[in-house]
Write a protein that binds this DNA or RNA. Sequence first.
DNA 1: GATGAATGAGCCTTCATTCAT
DNA 2: AATGAATGAAGGCTCATTCAT
Lengths: 245, 245, 245, 245
Amino acid sequence: MEGFKMEQKKKSKQELRSEETKRSIAEAAGKLFTERGYDTVTMREIAKEANCSHTTIYLYFKDKEALLEQLAIPPLQTLEAAFVSVMNQESLDPTGKLKEISRDFLRFCLSHRSMVTVIFNVKSVRVDEVNPTGEVNQLRTSLFSYLTESVNRIIPADTSEERINQTRIYFFVMNGMVSTYLNSEEPLEPLLERIIPLLDQSIEIVLLGMKHKLEQAQEPVNGQAKGQKDKEKSKKDKKQKDKQK
Amino acid sequence: MEGFKMEQKKKSKQELRSEETKRSIAEAAGKLFTERGYDTVTMREIAKEANCSHTTIYLYFKDKEALLEQLAIPPLQTLEAAFVSVMNQESLDPTGKLKEISRDFLRFCLSHRSMVTVIFNVKSVRVDEVNPTGEVNQLRTSLFSYLTESVNRIIPADTSEERINQTRIYFFVMNGMVSTYLNSEEPLEPLLERIIPLLDQSIEIVLLGMKHKLEQAQEPVNGQAKGQKDKEKSKKDKKQKDKQK
Amino acid sequence: MEGFKMEQKKKSKQELRSEETKRSIAEAAGKLFTERGYDTVTMREIAKEANCSHTTIYLYFKDKEALLEQLAIPPLQTLEAAFVSVMNQESLDPTGKLKEISRDFLRFCLSHRSMVTVIFNVKSVRVDEVNPTGEVNQLRTSLFSYLTESVNRIIPADTSEERINQTRIYFFVMNGMVSTYLNSEEPLEPLLERIIPLLDQSIEIVLLGMKHKLEQAQEPVNGQAKGQKDKEKSKKDKKQKDKQK
Amino acid sequence: MEGFKMEQKKKSKQELRSEETKRSIAEAAGKLFTERGYDTVTMREIAKEANCSHTTIYLYFKDKEALLEQLAIPPLQTLEAAFVSVMNQESLDPTGKLKEISRDFLRFCLSHRSMVTVIFNVKSVRVDEVNPTGEVNQLRTSLFSYLTESVNRIIPADTSEERINQTRIYFFVMNGMVSTYLNSEEPLEPLLERIIPLLDQSIEIVLLGMKHKLEQAQEPVNGQAKGQKDKEKSKKDKKQKDKQK
DNA sequence: GATGAATGAGCCTTCATTCAT
DNA sequence: AATGAATGAAGGCTCATTCAT
């Protein structure tokens, strides 16, 4: 009141109100994006949900895209923190850690359905804009490196290439689960309850498969047969390609 | 009767022109849909790409949706034919068949990227329109049943639930691969060359994993340890949930 | 065949075919215009109904408007002929003639519903085009003069102005009946059966009213009272005008 | 409580601007609809006439149809109020009342020319939409019932059918006048000045005619001659019908 | 800080009409 | 004579965004 600012410490009424507005917009946008997807939701709808004018949104967010982006950062940070926390949990073995962060990751993706598309799609990494999603990109990279690292710690692969491929397969499973259930209309919690066991099982199977695959590889007798099959098929691929068009 | 003419043989210039136009529209639409998605692409853009007026498109396709559908049907039919052909190929064992149709499927998805979203997404199965994509739906169902059946023939699962779950895991991998490379900017052929081995490997690993998982299940000693870990984690899940919102 | 033309007399096959096409277009257009109105009907619909290409229409009619116009001429001519025939029918007294041509007129209007709008609307007399509907206008004028004349022969009005006004009233009734039933969905014949007695009655009433009105006018005592009422009302008119806006 | 403010009194500049815009849109639409009809006028034209963007129109009116409807309601209400006021005017005898509301009605129709088509045409009563013009329909019904009732009070008809027919004839005259002058390019006021006497005269004549018609009916001697004439004519009707097609 | 007013770009679609065969 | 191919103009409408208060 009497010209005596607490520099950052105490926020003025206006500042508080401002933050509240921004928060309510973000919340509304998050809710609607999640429910109905980015494209389908209009700025006016967000405003209505946030109980403010649609023009107010532009006070806090440059445009619709920026809104989405900003919306993504906090959850991503939370997720990253969760990852770190798991990695530091000494009571868990590497497999346990992998399962745990995989669960966190799945939960995150299905909790922020619409954002996933934007966050993890190639689109947001388009090169035609200079660092379009700087912080988002950083976070994403960080998250993926946790996952990658976590997989790599488990698999005793000999060559780097083998390791990379195996990591990829792990990602296929994760990506596949997310894609599969991204558009599900089932409410989040029951859905997760249902599919987290599936996730665990999948990870177990994949890890088990990788392990035995590596053992096989050390017994060249089996490996050869496989190689032949592949060659047969690649011929057929060529033909197939011409037909489809 | 007399001199029976093959009237169908020679097409008039006009017919040729017409076909060429239709083809070029379909091509343009396919390209743009693939590159940028159904919703984003406008009829005028398609027309420009096809070097015709946007009204011309309506000469050949009822509306935008019909355009997409017509674009999707022939490739889907080709793919189905390929599936059938593989299934009838006696020289292949069940695993060989699964790998083969998986390759076909992957190739198809990446050759018709954008359509994949529309064809395989839940959205296109909306029930609020009368038979909106009748034929497309049928084809899709058929394709999936081939894949499912093909997986089921390999896995010696005891219970039906186990079988279903394992099929799901297979689909996660497939879905994951498709999702992962759907937006890749790499040209199709090199891309496929690169990832088909990965697909084969993934299938092998998953099948191998499933096999050993089943064996494990019959040795309850190992199963117990795992059970404990799971319980620890599910506690953490609850907390996590509250933070994210 | 042998280079021996009958000048106009015998029509070549082509000419016959051509006439048939034109006729079938006109018929189709007439039918559709009548059923659904000028604006709603498209050239392609007319073509489909006429079993020809929509471009063919342009061979015979400059454009859609011309089509409508040409469509109007023959029925108008028929109607005019009917008028003439009635006027020459010696067995009918003036009132009988008026009733008769009024019936013909009503029947015509309701048989060619959609055209009526174009034929009798002020629009088609727009001054911004040079003689836009030459022949149609002529016919129309002729028809109206028959009606006018027919009314005038009955009424023993003293002044020309009185006569004109009385003619107008007759036209209001006619116009009113046509307007009222123009959009009726009742089939033509039952409709006419139903309303022609009404037409007769209306004419009788109007003629009767005119007759007695004239008689009244020759007894100034009553006329005065009327004049007063009118003045009262015209004051109110002024106020009313300002409110509505 | 304290100093109770008449908040409604002073409108902010913005509110004023908004109202002005809405008004100018309504005015423009009214003018254009009147001049050229509902279908022919485009939203963009209205916008241009109202000096605003066509999108602005959608700020104030849901769509084109709503625009028309909103345009129609206030004048109809005014007209209804005028009817009520006349009916309560004790100084007027039934005939005076009929004349008065007829004048109001005519004035209304010619003041809102284009809307008349939409408001009073059968088309706008289509049942295939749920209460499309609810209030408009109600008002219209109310207006007509005032007119009907007003006519019925004057005519001493014996049977209900006679009464109905006579009411119809009255409506033909009204409808005919409106139709006749609906498209007149003459400015409203001079036009009304010119034709309101005509309206009065018409009503007088029709009422007079009806009165004497009824008297005639009670003297069967005259009635017979008329009956004969009618029969002659109905024969000719049949022939006429076949020619016109 | 917040908002209502206003807009331009753009979307899908239809139609009368012309062009080339 | 007749037609299929093709098109420009236009229509109603929505949306993200800016302007001025």
